[in-house]
Design a protein around this nucleic acid. Structure first.
Length: 555
RNA sequence: GCGGGUGUGGUGUAGCCUGGUAUCACUUAAGCUUGCCAAGCUUACAACCCGGGUUCAAAUCCCGGCGCCCGCACCA
């Protein structure tokens, strides 16, 4: 049987054969949506993540943190993930259609009631529908034995950053903007992950949350890059606009968003993405996530999958922080300082802890904070607070309303967030696909991965031209010197020289150093360039310097 | 989750209909040889997706599961 292979098949075959990527749990048949990174794949992944760090941590000055994968129920409840991602769906066998139960449920009828009384009907054919099943894309677990505490594997790393904001704000000495990044795994229990490494159930992401004063969504480096072009697509036409034009014409909402789009573009191109297979696409209103106000996807083109979303750059506004303030009661506001401290008259709630404390016990602390944050502008009869969705009325004897003169040094506000969120696995695949080249050598298929030197898992192959003890000794010495200098090498003395070059080309090694008979005479070796196959002769003592310079940076 | 297709060494395959433990090539490894782009020779390693059933006997027939591919649905 003839099975045509596309680039994806060929790349995945290469990946499996050469230790980049292969299915997890393969010996037990594998599980869809899970892949292992082998020795070379892990190296490439590290290189991509470290390149990313250069852009965000080194260049943009973001701070990096690490938070748990297992995430408390309350966090994801507050963030909206629990409600937004638990959908009941129902299937009509006749029409072969899936429906969200809430879409076809009559108002005021509970799901149980609808099922009992056969009120769920297919909107198309009217058949009674029964096989209701919840579709929850989060992996749930619990912390501790017995009842434990409800938890999920995080669907994004972002929540770990938001729940840390008050701490990070202080760490950054209360100055905005603050960029915080996290690289780690996220989990989504996909219904049908059938696109290899493009749609994983456990995946790596690199996320940055940049906290801004909403009245000042600018970036200090914007001036430097304002004339650079962005490749934009607004779902109708593709255009090349400078950052300045894009912001001026309101194609992109603000400077900060435009700046991080530019940073993303630079990162992807320097990681080896083909510029012709790159664009930013703006989300239409109805495809925005529940938390997003404006969102641009960096899409990369795959011959197999078409345009694939690899980075999402969203303006999450104050959504997450205000949700967490509301549900945790913790002060996560930022302060916009006035030039001079103002004195204002203000009505204020002063909790009376001696009655409030004994009455509400463990909730008293949270109630106190909430009370103090209530704005008492007009006459109020009743005061109530919301804790975990429960409305609690506060008796009059638990507080006083007093008019005070307060010195105000600034205005409190909830920072807005711009979030560039990168799918590392997708980017890795796209880099492989964009740099996979096929040629013929003597009628035989010849494969080259033209990876950027910084991304390539092995930087230099080192060979003795023949298995002559003298040449072997010199080659091993050069190999050692390169490794001492931090350059990952691959020493190889088996097979013909052509075969050894071919092995290195296939895994994307940019340079090969070969020790030949002339080396013994004049102390020089050849250095072969992967893409041109051309060789230059260099003194042995210059090899390390030459290679390091060519690689550009070591990650 | 639904429908269709499919699953044999590391890779690509022959064998399946018509049951009798598996073909060929490449790769890999060792040796010889060669001496700058997958050369040659010798040798070696290595596979029937998993679980049941039928049968004296299952890669082959039947059932179930899992994976992969295509379409539908889903996709923060």
């Amino acid at each position: 049987m003839f099975m045509p292979q596309d680039v994806y098949d060929k790349i995945m075959m290469l990946c499996k054969r050469r230790g980049f990527i292969y299915p997890s749990f393969d010996i037990y048949g594998g599980v869809a949506g899970f892949y292992d990174y082998g020795p070379l794949g892990s190296q490439v992944k590290n290189n991509i993540e470290n390149l990313w760090r250069r852009f965000y941590v080194l260049k943009d000055g973001c701070i990096e943190i690490n938070t748990p994968i297992i995430t408390l129920y309350e966090v994801l409840k507050a963030s909206g993930h629990v409600d937004e991602f638990t959908d009941l769906t129902v299937h009509c066998g006749k029409c072969k259609q899936f429906y969200k139960v809430e879409d076809i449920l009559e108002k005021g009828v509970s799901v149980e009631e609808a099922l009992k009384k056969n009120l769920l009907r297919c909107p198309r054919c009217g058949m009674v529908l029964k096989n209701v099943s919840p579709v929850n894309l989060m992996f749930s677990t619990k912390i501790g034995i017995g009842e434990g505490r409800k938890a999920f594997l995080r669907p994004e790393t972002a929540q770990g950053i938001f729940t840390n904001f008050h701490f990070l704000y202080r760490f950054a000495r209360e100055k905005l903007p603050i960029g915080v990044v996290q690289i780690g795994k996220g989990y989504r229990n996909e219904v049908s992950p059938r696109q290899g490494i493009i749609r994983l159930r456990e995946f790596s992401m690199a996320e940055a949350e940049i906290f801004f004063d909403p009245t000042n969504k600018t970036h200090s480096d914007f001036e430097k890059v304002k004339d650079k072009k962005l490749f934009l697509f607004d779902n109708e036409k593709e255009m090349k606009l400078s950052l300045r034009e894009a912001v001026k014409n309101k194609v992109v909402d603000n400077q900060a968003l435009a700046y991080y789009m530019y940073l993303t573009q630079e990162f992807l191109l320097s990681a080896g993405v083909d510029p012709k297979k790159f664009r930013f696409r703006k989300h239409a209103k109805d495809e925005l996530a529940h938390y997003a106000r404006e969102c641009w996807d960096a899409e990369l083109f795959s011959e197999r999958f078409g345009w694939v979303e690899c980075v999402g750059i969203a303006d999450r506004s104050a959504y997450d922080l205000s949700s967490h303030i509301k549900s945790s009661g913790v002060d996560m506001y930022a302060l916009r300082r006035y030039d001079k401290t103002k004195t204002v008259k203000k009505k204020k709630i002063v909790p009376n802890m001696s009655t409030l404390g004994p009455l509400f016990k463990e909730k008293a602390g949270r109630i106190k904070t909430l009370l103090e944050n209530i704005d008492v502008t007009s006459e109020v009869d009743e005061i109530s607070v919301n804790i975990d969705g429960e409305k609690i009325e506060i008796p009059k004897d638990c507080y006083k309303i007093v008019e005070t003169e307060e010195k105000v040094s600034g205005e409190k506000f909830i920072p807005h967030v711009i979030e560039p969120s990168y799918g590392i696995d997708r980017i890795l695949y796209m880099i492989l696909e964009h740099n996979y080249m096929e040629t013929k050598k003597k009628e035989e298929e010849y494969r080259v991965l033209r990876l950027k030197p910084g991304i390539a898992p092995v930087k230099t192959g080192v060979f003795p031209l023949v298995n002559d003890d003298k040449l072997v000794e010199i080659a091993k010495k050069i190999d050692n010197d390169l490794r001492d200098a931090g350059v990952i090498t691959y020493y190889d003395d088996s097979g013909s020289i052509g075969r050894r070059y071919a092995r290195m080309d296939e895994i994307g090694t940019p340079f090969c150093v070969t020790v030949d008979h002339d080396t013994i005479v004049d102390n020089t070796v050849t250095i072969r360039d992967r893409d041109t196959t051309r060789q230059v002769r260099k003194k042995i003592e210059d090899v390390v310097g030459y290679i390091k310079e060519k690689i550009g940076f070591l990650v």
